[in-house]
C-alpha cells in the first residue's frame, strides 16, 4: 500500500490537494477562501494531468538528435490552455467577490 502510494506519489499529492481545495470551496464561508480553494483544486488537476504525461527519464518534448524518450507534450498543452481559462475564471470570481463586498458594506464607487 505504502509502496504503491510512493510510486504514484504525484497522483496521491494531487488528490490530497484536490480534497483540500474542495474542502475550502464547500465548507468555508469566506468568498476569498472559496476562490483560493478553487485555485488549489485547479492546481491539483494540473499536477494530475502533467503526471499522466510524465515518463520516467523522459526528456522535454523537443526533437533533439539522440533522444528517444520524450514526455508526452499533449497534457502539457492542455494544462497551458486550462491555465489561461483558470486565470479568467479567477479574475471574474474576484470581481464578483469585490462587488459583493462593496454591496454588503453599502459602499458605492
Amino acid at each position: 500500500m505504502l509502496k504503491a502510494s510512493f510510486s504514484n506519489l504525484i497522483y496521491v499529492v494531487s488528490m490530497i490537494l484536490f480534497l483540500i481545495g474542495f474542502y475550502a470551496v464547500a465548507m468555508r464561508p469566506s468568498l476569498i477562501k472559496k476562490i483560493i480553494g478553487i485555485n488549489i483544486m485547479e492546481t491539483a488537476i494540473f499536477l494530475f494531468l502533467i503526471g499522466i504525461g510524465n515518463k520516467k527519464g523522459g526528456a522535454s518534448p523537443l526533437v533533439v538528435e539522440g533522444i528517444e524518450k520524450y514526455v508526452n507534450p499533449f497534457p502539457q498543452a492542455m494544462v497551458l490552455m486550462a491555465l489561461v481559462v483558470g486565470v479568467g475564471t479567477t479574475a471574474l470570481a474576484l470581481i464578483l467577490a469585490v462587488r459583493l463586498f462593496e454591496c454588503e458594506n453599502g459602499e458605492k464607487r
Binding site: F22, V25, L49, T89
Partner: peptide, 29 residues
C-alpha cells in the same frame, strides 16, 4: 446584491463542475 450572490454561487458550482470535466478527461486520456 441578490443577483451578485446568485452569480457567485453559480460561479462556485460552475467552476467545480468544469474542474470535474478536466479531471474526468484526464482520467480518460
Amino acid at each position: 446584491r441578490e443577483a451578485l450572490r446568485a452569480g457567485f454561487r453559480y460561479l462556485v458550482m460552475g467552476i467545480v463542475s468544469s474542474l470535474f470535466i478536466l479531471l474526468g478527461l484526464g482520467f480518460i486520456y
